[in-house]
Design a protein around this nucleic acid. Sequence first.
DNA 1: CGCGCCGTAGGACATTTGACCTAAAATCTT
DNA 2: AAGATTTTAGGTCAAATGTCCTACGGCGCG
Lengths: 199, 199
Amino acid sequence: MTASETRRQIVVAADRLFYERGFEATSFADIAGAVRLSRGNFYYHFRTKDEILQAVIAHRIDATQAVLDAWEAGADSPAERILSFVRILITNRTAIMAHGCPVGTLCNELSKLDHAAKDDAVRLFTLFRGWLVRQFTALGREADADALALHVLMRSQGVATLATAFRDEAFVRREIDDVAAWLTAQCPPASPPASRPHP
Amino acid sequence: MTASETRRQIVVAADRLFYERGFEATSFADIAGAVRLSRGNFYYHFRTKDEILQAVIAHRIDATQAVLDAWEAGADSPAERILSFVRILITNRTAIMAHGCPVGTLCNELSKLDHAAKDDAVRLFTLFRGWLVRQFTALGREADADALALHVLMRSQGVATLATAFRDEAFVRREIDDVAAWLTAQCPPASPPASRPHP
DNA sequence: CGCGCCGTAGGACATTTGACCTAAAATCTT
DNA sequence: AAGATTTTAGGTCAAATGTCCTACGGCGCG
């Protein structure tokens, strides 16, 4: 096995474990075990947990960017793209009801730990935020695109958190429908300006 | 110092530390140090970390219940009461931007740890949920009171999470205003039914 | 071919940390 | 002062982290 391939496997396994159990609760040995490496060999690739965290975040950023790029390259309208984003909550409902949103929970945990990589994790949010801003701008809402983007992110996060707490799939679907309705009201052909963000 | 008083101090200190650093990241010694107790004395009051967690959750439930009762005993209208709840985000903005929502982040962490006390933590949410249901019922929305309650909780959680990530106070205020506007649209004297929850 | 180099892999320590426990001193109660 | 309660100062044990050392196999080179 080549070193970079081994490394990649480690990052993928760590990514999953950090998501499922949290960063703090995942031990070096847990990750090594998941990839079937001895501790010593593991150390050859990553010397500290923080290094792994850095790599995991970088990996997530790449993966996220790829998904967003693909959506933006597709034929969907900006509004449909935004809905694609929100529907992640449905697609990943099982994982989310068990472990929450990967981005939100990581940012929360790193904030509490006051971890050096905190800001890097927030960049994941920033990625989505910027992408959403572009979609809303394309919908003719350049003036308040950022407020709208944050609003969509806010709703996703809120739904994810409550989904984890209550494990209520009907609630998730209801709220997704509500976002869809809100979105339609935001960017219609021509209707009275809705009561939303006044930035 | 009487035992129950010492115990109370321990719970208060543990509550703060669990909130600020997280449950997993807070050690026995951290709590003992915060109350200036020897580890042994600490052990006299609580034998395991899980016992402390139980006590902290019970303490939070009591405190929450007291606040909700006070609000319900006050002269405010149900709509104003709901706004009081949402405005906690403003009142506690400093703490929330640093450590998130105490309820949401605890539930998230315990979910990941698959901790036995997970469901007890969710009861904190349930407390708010039931209280909100009563307010919406009083506003004449008994039919969808629960969906509306969850919607308000969802927004609070989303705002808290993003507030922690971006530390943007203006965003928080904007979203609070938006909830207020939404609330007005929900339960007005008599207006066309808004596009909200269809449970 | 023989030899040393290097990337890769695996195991054997050493150190630290944190949860959990005990014995006995100090303090309070009656 | 007897007896219960509270506090202190230790100590144990397992898990986690950090570091080193050996081994194997390909490969360039004299």
